[in-house]
Design a binder for these strands. Structure first.
Length: 463
RNA sequence: UCCGGAGUAGCUCAAUGGCAGAGCGGGUGGCUGUUAACCACUAGGUUGGGGGUUCAAGUCCCUCCUCCGGAGCCA
């Protein structure tokens, strides 16, 4: 059977009018009376449903009238203009074959459900309008990211998921082992003998591909990673997940300002792409999820992002006509309330905050000439907060080595990372974009669990 | 992990310490153009678990669990 896709019908309704077509999909709603009934059919190809009209002349009219939501059917009929106001065309059924009847305890109703409830049925929620739209946008956004980098000559690098060092310093890690948990082998001191583990050393799931991707940056000049990362933090917020995807570009012969240019270009490009490629889904978000969405995204696409230093941010916050719970003092990290004030109230658009005190930032960030700050940047956006964190990397061998020692890290763990500074080092920079946070921003969804197909958070890995 | 809130029918929510309810969904019947269709009838409960106070607990107390929001950590 050759099926016409609902998407094709909606894109060119005139071409299909009066034509015989066959469609196959799932029932979203049924309404029927004695001699007439309506089915809204979604076939997965398009956000909107096709209305199917069926009449008592169908041999299985009664059976069709009793079909349950989610049942799958195949319909053959003629496409006609619809007298109803809500759809341009409809399919007048000549035959309806029931492919798979849904049992009557299907939990999704024809009304709004709470996102909390839908999380408990993650296997069924893609069939709702909201999640259908979210995961469509997720796919488009991923493609847009590849498109952006590929068009600019970036090489896509697959950095490892299992990492051999716990030295990346970006948070608690998940251990990877084949040792028997109840009875692990011990060495002479009674400590667990990881020599006998699968990799003959301690291994974990990666928390960032950055250190590894820098190696390829020194060969390909412009590179990026895009893959899953894992944090075993006991974080319980709407913005944190234990497993999430991250995009980490790295550019050689570049400084922090070029890094920010890249981040700004990328954000604008991928948002624009989704607006163009998913108009129905975006319209839905703007109507039902966040009425200021279009306004906000247009603002991002067309404005120049603000760029201020951390020191300037502290000054601005001290002058703010708002009381903060946490004190402002040079050297302390900015709190969520401070970041929100800057990006939401003061500037009302994305803001780069740069040149943070070196004491609160990672070892690999390049120390500025003042010896107090590092060439780091965070991109703050209204509603979501920090969406990107990046920096120019310390390319000077001695400086990097001293930073590692000063921070009490084990020099041995970084031997290959330091080698990059011994063999043809160059200034370079990069950043990490939280993929789910980008989806949240572009859809207006407020919880990371609702933009991740199968979210992993503390105490939650059901699906 | 800390602070706050919540947990009652499949879902969304009511119920002054005194008979556990409604709307939606399900079932049955009706209805010729519906749009979260409509109308009538009907079934459906270990009030998150455990303990306590009381003549009497969904309601008050203790404890544990789970979820939500905020914070910290970060992307």
């Amino acid at each position: 059977m050759k099926y016409t896709l609902v998407k094709e019908i909606f894109q060119e309704p005139q071409a299909y009018l009066t034509q015989k077509v066959a469609v196959a999909g799932w029932i979203r709603t049924v309404r029927s009376s004695k001699e007439l009934g309506f089915i809204e059919l979604n076939d997965g190809s398009f956000f909107k449903n096709l209305q199917v009209v069926f009449e008592a002349s169908l041999p299985n009219f009664e059976e069709v009238g009793k079909l349950t939501i989610a049942s799958s059917i195949e319909v053959q009929g003629t496409l006609v203009e619809s007298p109803g106001a809500k759809q341009p065309v409809e399919l007048k059924a000549e035959s309806i074959e029931i492919v798979g009847l849904a049992e009557n305890d299907y939990p999704l109703q024809k009304k709004r459900h709470s996102f909390e409830f839908l999380r408990t049925i993650a296997h069924l929620r893609p069939r709702t309008n909201t999640f259908f739209a979210v995961f469509k946008v997720r796919s488009l956004l991923a493609f847009a990211i590849h498109k952006f980098f590929q068009e600019r000559g970036f090489i896509y690098v697959h950095t490892p998921i299992i990492t051999g060092s716990d030295a990346e310093g970006a948070g608690e890690m998940f251990r990877v082992t084949t040792l028997e948990l109840g009875n692990p082998p011990r060495d002479e001191q009674g400590k667990i003998d990881f020599n006998q583990d699968f990799f003959a050393k301690e291994t974990n799931l990666t928390v960032s591909g950055q250190l590894e991707v820098e190696t390829h940056c020194m060969a390909f000049r412009k590179v990026y990673t895009f893959g899953p990362t894992f944090r075993a933090e006991n974080s319980n917020t709407a913005r944190h997940a234990s497993e999430f995807w991250m995009i980490e570009p790295e550019i050689a012969f570049a400084d922090l300002s070029q890094d920010m240019d890249l981040a700004e270009d990328m954000v604008k490009y991928i948002f624009q792409y989704v607006m163009e490629q998913a108009p129905e889904e975006m319209e839905f978000f703007n109507t039902w999820i966040d009425k200021t969405l279009f306004q906000r995204l247009e603002n991002v696409i067309h404005s120049n992002f603000e760029r201020i230093t951390y020191s300037q941010a502290i000054e601005l916050l001290k002058k703010a006509d708002q009381k903060f719970e946490f004190p402002l003092e040079w050297g302390r990290d900015l709190q969520t309330e401070h970041e929100r004030y800057l990006t939401e109230k003061l500037f009302g658009k994305p803001v780069f905050v740069t040149d943070y005190p070196k004491a609160i930032k990672a070892f690999y960030m390049r120390v500025n000439d003042d010896d107090k700050t590092v060439a780091a940047m965070d991109l703050l956006v209204p509603g979501v907060g920090e969406i990107i964190g990046g920096s120019q990397r310390e390319e000077r061998y001695e400086m990097l080595k001293n930073r590692i020692i000063d921070l009490g890290l084990n020099l041995q763990d970084y031997w290959w990372y330091l080698d990059l500074r011994r063999y043809g080092t160059v200034p370079h920079a990069g950043f990490g974009l939280g993929f789910e946070r980008a989806i949240m921003y572009v859809t207006g969804m407020e919880n990371i669990r609702d933009v991740t197909p199968f979210p992993r958070t503390p105490r939650n890995a059901e699906f």
